[in-house]
Design a binder for these strands. Structure first.
Lengths: 307, 307
DNA sequence: CTATACTCTTGTAAATACGCACAGAACACG
DNA sequence: CGTGTTCTGTGCGTATTTACAAGAGTATAG
């Protein structure tokens, strides 16, 4: 009963017309001129067409067609509807074509997110992708917070750490980021070489994220006394700056660290210091050609040595 | 089974998208952001909305929304649909407003038809109507053939003769058109006065319609020998011209005939010569304000004396 | 950290719309 | 002038769609 009341309420006060399918039916009737022809074109029965027209006319309170034995001829209102519905049909046809074709074409916006710490190692490869696919507008978002794919915030998230296991996410292994200990040559000259049996004699630079899920942090907590932690930086970039300024010893990705001028590598990359990097996409978007395109590019193009 | 085959056939080869109601549902979902909100706005159940979205996505072969616990967020395809559907909604709202308001307003085209023979007596009153209602574009169509209201050829037909009894037509008596015999004064001077007991001595001018349903034609056939029919004209205008040229005696409407210079009225108007004139409208259009407007005008404004 | 409120999802029964078949009427053709 | 075809209109049985209700998950408030 409440439903009944609500329904009449809507049909009375609704200014726009609901029942777009009925408009479509009336459109075909106005186009063809007969109920039978429209029914055949629509793939439905004549009776359905007649009922749609009757319902639409009742709701609009105005006759759309004049009935006679040869068929239905549109009144002024019917012709008006014909014009509007024709435009709508064209727009919907174009829309369907765009949406159906969108799966195959690689255009539009492509949003990739990662933590800022991964930015340096990804930018080169992403830039090459943007150059190879000028049709796409590449947006690379970096933030400390984790972007949520299920909210449509990005097409592709590049994450580090343990394998993400959120539902509806498609996860692929990207590469293993090896870390090693680095320090500036000025620091070594001043403090001496690194002795793993006397770590407390050195000064360490670490990142100070609330949840230090970096794998080498666990090693740090176990093997380096707190007194040796000389510098805590909230951002990864600050850590690098601190190391390069000679503030102490710190973990850096192996390859780019070894290329930075003035820095010396103090150890090999150990497996327990390595962090896995994952390519994460939402299941709804994973199948699209655009997402597949950048996934294929990254997996082929990315060279850890160039890091 | 054949129906099943036809249905898949259509959904495969149809380039435009059928199911406009589903597009409307998706539009509201994209607008509100949640299935529940869209369902409330549409006045349907949540489940219906979900099924519409699923069906639409299946038909388009592309995801329109990303589902998550907070609701539905539109993908690129969904946003594209949102834009198109918004335009459609606006257009349909305007259309509904136009159609609903059309019944009350007196604008647009107003088509009146009659036989050419009635043109002279109607033009003056019709012109006054057009002057009083500048919003309407008055089209006055005259042809020997009978315009068919059920085909939407005219809003109002003015017909003479016996009362029309076609179904779906609303018939009102307009006026009684009285006919009398006229001749040019030159003819009378040459042939002498009219003697009803010796009609064969005169020359008559008649109209030669295939079905001479004019009431005085029956009188002519009974009382005037064929030999006295000197002139047959297919068009009423030609009959007038012939009488004014002195070709013979003929029937003319009483009032205008008596006003034509050079013409003399040879008899009184007899009831058996009178023709009824009817206002005929289609039942679908009869109730509209526009049709009622001209009906009211004609019945009040028309002055048989001014004929 | 628990509770609450909101969301989507899925299965089942009712309601609605649909297709079918027949009737009625008008037009075209021979 | 009769016949055949094509169109609309309507009652009825079925099938699709819909609403209802229960379930599970997640964000927000206290």
């Amino acid at each position: 009963m409440l439903d009944r009341e609500q329904k009449t309420h809507r049909s009375n006060r609704m200014n726009g017309l609901d029942g777009w399918d009925e408009v479509r039916t009336a459109y075909h009737v106005a186009l063809v001129g007969t109920v039978s022809g429209a029914a055949e074109a629509l793939g439905v029965h004549h009776a359905t067409v007649i009922r749609h027209i009757d319902a639409l006319e009742a709701r609009l309170g105005s006759k759309l067609f004049q009935r006679h034995a040869r068929g239905y001829t549109a009144t002024e209102a019917g012709n008006d509807l014909l014009q509007v519905a024709k435009a709508t049909d064209d727009q919907f046809t174009q829309l369907a074509g765009r949406i159906k074709g969108r799966g195959e074409e690689v255009t539009g916006e492509l949003i990739v997110t990662s933590l800022p710490s991964l930015s340096a190692s990804l930018t080169a490869s992403l830039a090459r992708y943007g150059h190879a696919n000028p049709e796409v507008v590449l947006r690379f978002l970096t933030d400390e917070r984790v972007f949520r794919l299920e909210y449509g915030e990005a097409h592709l998230a590049i994450r580090a750490g343990k394998r993400p296991d959120e539902p509806d996410n498609v996860v692929q292994k990207f590469f293993e980021m090896e870390h090693a200990l680095f320090a500036h040559e000025d620091y070594i000259a001043r403090m001496g070489a690194l002795d793993f049996d006397n770590l407390g004699a050195h000064r360490f630079v670490v990142d100070d994220n609330r949840d230090s899920r970096a794998p080498y942090n666990a090693w740090l907590r176990q093997n380096v006394p707190d007194s040796a932690i000389a510098y805590r930086a909230s951002a990864q970039l600050s850590v690098i700056d601190a190391i390069r300024a000679g503030a102490g010893i710190g973990f850096l990705p192996k390859r780019p660290g070894s290329r930075m001028p003035g820095l010396v590598q103090l150890s090999d990359a150990r497996p327990e210091w390595a962090a896995s990097v994952w390519l994460v996409t939402h299941v709804d978007l994973h199948r699209t050609a655009k997402v597949q395109s950048i996934l294929k590019h990254l997996k082929e193009d990315y060279d850890p040595g160039a890091f």
